[in-house]
Each structure stands twice: as C-alpha cells, then as structure tokens.
C-alpha cells in the first residue's frame, strides 16, 4: 500500500510540475517542448498504471492460490476451500434435517403408546371407582384383577419404550456440537475471504486513480436494490430487536395486521 501511495504521489508531483512547464512552453510557443512534456507525462502515468495492475494481478493470484479456488493450479488440494465450505454447509443442512426427522419419528412413535396407556387407565379407573363403592360382583372382580395386571405390564413396557425414545431424542441433539464446529470454520473462512477481497478492492482503486476510471455509483446502487427485491424474501431476521422495519414476534404481526383492518 505504501509503495502504491509513493508511485501515485510521484505521478501527481510529476503531473503538477509538468503542467506548469507545459503552460510556460505553450505560452512561449515552444510546441516541440510541450509535446515532449505530454509524452513524459503519459510515460509516468503508464508506468504507475502497469505497476498497480501488476500488483493487483499478483495479489489476485495469491488470493486464488490461498483459497485454492482453481483446481488446475498445483497448490490446489483435492477440493477448493470454497467448494469444501459449500460441502460443509450442505452437511449441516443434512445433519439438522436428519436430527429433526429422527426427533419427530420418536415423538410420533411415543404418542400412541402414551395415548393407549391413558385410554386403558381411564377405563380401569371407572371400574376401580365402582369396585371402591363395592358395586363389583365377584366374577367381574376376577376380570378386573386380570385387567389391572395386564395394565401394569403394559404400563411398564410403555414406560420403558417412551423412556428409551426420550433418551434417543436427547442423543439426536448431538448435531448441535458437530454443526457448530463446521459453521465456526466456515465463518472463519468467510471472514478471511472478505478481508482479502477488501485488499483487492483497495488495490483496484489505485488502478482506477491512475487510469482515471469513474464508476457509476448510481448504477451500482440500483443493481444492489434490484437484488433486494422483496418477492424473493430475506429469510430469518437476525437483529429483529434492533430494527424498526422488522416485527419482533407474532404479537407485532397481529398489531400490524389489525391496524390494516384485519
């Protein structure tokens, strides 16, 4: 960066010095000298431009090497870091989906067990109340005893089954540890890519200054706005509590809709 500033400074001081000389030469009618000065100015500008483009190219190359984006370069490992990060994130999606489905499977298997026990207990309870009120005859009592016995067996079985499922649900949460590690690594990569991209942009801006290139900021902004089109959606809001234009929960949605006459 310092050397860029030096070469740019050199160019600017040459430009200033030659500009005065150029005016003097023209005023004195020495056109040959003036053309020579313009030629020298061009050369200084070109030299600076080539230097900056060279630096930018080198930096770009080292960025490509460090992220192993191009699989044809010898430094590339089996997959580039970006491809690797994409695969890691797909793994996160797969793992969380698997855990969610496993949890729902276990809940869906547990619900009928509990419902069955509840139905059985309710029926038994009604007859048990009758027994307590001495309304049950001896033959019926024998049947009731059998039902109580079988309920106790069912209850123990069901209990074991649901307890096992609860334990498996607990274990299914282990994805958090694994996905957390993966996401932290990808976050580190994204931060690194961002700071390197920023460096490239800074170098490119030096080239722009030498070459006198002006970017159409309005057009860039318009392109960015187009990307933000609301139809596509934005996904979950991360800082909902800090943003005025975002609702902070269902109550906010309800208030907004009722203000619209819903």
């Amino acid at each position: 960066m310092n050397s860029s500033q030096t070469s740019l400074g050199e160019f600017e001081s040459t430009l200033k010095k030659h500009a005065q000389e150029l005016v003097e030469s023209l005023e004195r009618g020495r056109f040959g000298e003036a053309v020579q000065l313009i030629h020298e100015l061009n050369q200084t500008r070109d030299r600076g431009l080539y230097q900056e483009v060279g630096k930018l190219t080198r930096e770009l190359h080292s960025a490509i090497v460090s992220f192993q984006i191009d699989p044809t370069i010898p430094q590339a490992e089996e997959v580039s870091q970006i491809t690797d990060a994409t695969e890691r994130l797909s793994y996160v999606v797969k793992l969380t989906e698997g855990a969610a489905n496993r949890t729902m499977d276990l809940v869906e298997e547990s619900t009928p067990v509990l419902n069955g026990l509840a139905t059985e207990a309710n029926a038994l309870s009604a007859d048990w109340q009758r027994f307590m009120r001495r309304e049950v005859a001896a033959t019926e009592f024998r049947d009731l005893v059998k039902r109580v016995d079988s309920f106790l067996t069912h209850s123990a079985e069901g209990n074991r089954k649901v307890a096992g499922h609860l334990n498996d649900i607990l274990l299914a949460q282990d994805y958090q540890d694994l996905t957390g590690q993966v996401i932290k690594r990808v976050t580190a990569l994204v931060t690194e890519v961002e700071s390197n991209l920023l460096k490239l942009v800074m170098m490119a801006s030096q080239v722009d200054r030498f070459a006198g290139i002006q970017h159409d900021q309005d057009q860039l902004r318009a392109e960015k706005d187009r990307e933000k089109h609301p139809t596509r959606g934005e996904g979950p809001q991360i800082h909902a509590d800090k943003r005025e234009d975002v609702v902070s929960g269902q109550d906010d949605v309800d208030d907004l809709l009722s203000s619209l006459g819903f």
């Binding site: 609301p230 959606g233 934005e234 996904g235 979950p236 809001q237 909902a240 234009d245 975002v246 609702v247 902070s248 929960g249 269902q250 949605v253 907004l256 809709l257 619209l260 819903f262």
Partner: peptide
C-alpha cells in the same frame, strides 16, 4: 407461515389478500 418478518412484507402479503400471517 414464514420467517419473513419485515413490516413491508407483511403489508405486501395483506395487500395481496392473505387471510393470516404467522412468523416463524
């Protein structure tokens, strides 16, 4: 039933004729 939580989006959905809006 959506994670989209911008006020503008909820208004847009209401104007498009949604009957209810639940945020995830």
């Amino acid at each position: 039933v959506t994670a989209e939580a911008k006020r503008d989006q909820i208004i847009e959905a209401a104007q498009a004729g949604v009957n209810g809006y639940v945020v995830k």
